[in-house]
Design a protein around this nucleic acid. Structure first.
Length: 185
DNA sequence: CCCTGATTCGC
DNA sequence: GCGAATCAGG
């Protein structure tokens, strides 16, 4: 992905390519207060990045342009290079993994939106984790980590009445989408 | 055409 | 350091 090394022109040079100007560079927020990278925004950026959100999604949530996100990630030496567990799988599987991670993240994010002390309301015991083969009717099937990862396992806590999840994870699982959807522009 | 992330370089 | 312009590619 190496851009050619010639013909770099800026709008200030009087040369603007109106063919591509630019649906990807939606203006950020109010131009009033110089929207710079505060610590909070950087933390949001990192969080969303590690959650597998796309740069556009991150940008929409933070309120900056997509290029701003990409530029900042680049400066932070954060990249979306092939992850170890995704390197050798086919594309559709890799895509499914990304989707799963994003969904898990959105569930947690929804919890954070509603509860000030999320973990206190949904105590999750980590001591009963088990493998796929160890699952049973009364064991929580909430996936831990990423499928295919070395440490992938299931919650394994007691789940009442043979339900799929323990009480804590049921709260995560059966929550309607509480996150504002992105608006395409 | 839509989109994605990556890079360059004027500011 | 920031990010618009532009790239390569799905």
């Amino acid at each position: 992905m190496r851009p050619k090394e010639h013909a770099k022109r800026k709008a200030s040079d009087g040369v603007v390519d109106f063919r591509t100007w630019d649906r990807h560079n939606m203006p950020a927020t109010s131009p009033t207060s110089a929207a710079t990278w505060t610590n909070e925004r950087i933390e949001l950026l990192k969080s969303h990045f590690h959650a597998g959100l796309s740069c556009r999604e991150i940008a929409a949530d933070i309120g900056v342009s997509r290029n701003a996100v990409i530029g900042k990630l680049s400066r932070l030496n954060l990249t979306r290079g092939p992850k170890r567990e995704e390197r050798s799988v086919d594309k559709s599987t890799a895509r499914a993994l990304r989707t799963l991670r994003r969904l898990q993240y959105e569930m947690l994010d929804a919890i954070y939106d509603e509860a000030e002390t999320p973990l206190a309301h949904a105590p999750i015991d980590e001591t009963n984790r088990c493998s796929l083969l160890e699952l049973s009717e009364n064991r929580c099937r909430w996936p831990i980590s990423t499928p295919g990862a070395d440490d992938f396992c299931f919650c394994g806590n007691a789940s009442p009445d043979g339900q799929s999840y323990c009480t804590g994870h049921a709260r995560l699982a059966y929550r309607p989408n509480g996150r504002a959807r992105l608006v395409r522009g």
